[in-house]
């Protein structure tokens, strides 16, 4: 492997002179071994660390009626999440978009639960349906994001002004974050209170998507709540009235 070559030039060299020796060490096996080790480390490492979404839930302790925070009816918007599943419980995919079929039912303010003919179906449920679509490259919003965007317009407009400054390097990251936080919590602006309720079939992904919409739309007041009888009745009525199975 490591050979010592003697330069032999016709034996003309003087007697007693030191012979020049070139030492060649063959590094090929060394490189082979290194490559193997690199491959091992590359396969065993996680370069992308997971992200987290921090949430705070209320504790389960019973709260007196008088102590409960009441939400203004004009500010409240309730999202009810659902995911379509087949008979086995697999999440169904939308063939056009290739995305899972998540549905967002929502109503603003209080639910309307009038049932005059007593057939168990609410006559005019004030419930509407949207989907998680996202926005286009130009910043246009669609689906449920559009609804929430419009509800939180005042906050978003103010934050966008600061965001522009931050993009132009007039503000540092910390300054921008602090300002955005102040705007999000500014009680003089019209801000919605979002109540997120997930149905039993709703996938974890849809819950995360809903929490995501809160982040994207800079909504500071939102709450995860349990689905109740009224909500189920609204959805069933909506489906019956619109002929959805």
């Amino acid at each position: 492997m490591a050979q010592i070559e003697q330069s032999d030039k016709g034996g003309k060299g003087k007697k007693g002179a030191q012979k020049k020796m070139a030492i060649h060490v063959d590094f090929t096996p060394m490189v082979d071994m290194n490559m193997l080790l690199i491959t091992f480390f590359m396969l065993c490492t996680t370069m992308i660390k997971s992200q987290t979404l921090q949430i705070a839930l209320p504790s389960n302790e019973k709260v007196e009626e008088a102590q409960q925070n009441k939400t203004k009816q004009s500010e409240a918007i309730t999202l009810i999440l659902d995911t379509e599943r087949d008979a086995d419980g697999n999440v169904m995919m939308d063939l056009e978009t290739g995305k899972p079929k998540h549905t967002v039912y929502y109503y603003e303010g209080k639910p309307v639960v009038d049932d005059e003919n007593k057939d168990g179906i609410i006559d005019n449920p004030n419930i509407k349906v949207e989907k998680f679509i996202g926005n286009s490259n130009t910043g246009e919003t669609f689906g449920i994001r559009n609804i929430l965007h419009n509800r939180n317009k005042q906050v978003l407009e103010k934050i966008n002004v600061q965001k522009e400054k931050w993009r132009n390097k007039e503000l540092t990251d910390e300054e921008y974050q602090a300002l955005a936080k102040d705007i999000r919590n500014d009680s003089t602006l019209v801000r919605p209170v979002v109540i997120i309720k997930a149905g039993p079939n709703a996938s974890y992904e849809s819950l995360i998507s809903a929490l995501d919409e809160m982040q994207i739309n800079q909504i500071s007041r939102y709450q995860i709540d349990n689905i109740n009888g009224v909500d189920s009745a609204l959805i069933i009525s909506y489906k019956t009235l619109n002929g959805i199975k």
């Binding site: 992308i48 997971s50 992200q51 987290t52 979404l53 921090q54 949430i55 705070a56 839930l57 209320p58 504790s59 389960n60 999440l81 995911t83 599943r85 419980g89 697999n90 999440v91 899972p100 997930a198 149905g199 039993p200 079939n201 709703a202 996938s203 974890y204 992904e205 849809s206 819950l207 995360i208 929490l211 995860i224 349990n226």
Partner: peptide, 29 residues
């Protein structure tokens, strides 16, 4: 991501009962 909320809710509810009601959910970017 496909786990139904009814299963997740059990865990979240237990954490709330334990008064550990601030926590994070792991996600990808």
């Amino acid at each position: 991501k496909d786990t139904p909320y009814s299963t997740i809710h059990n865990v979240l509810d237990n954490l709330q009962t334990l008064k550990l009601n601030k926590f994070s959910l792991m996600t990808a970017l």
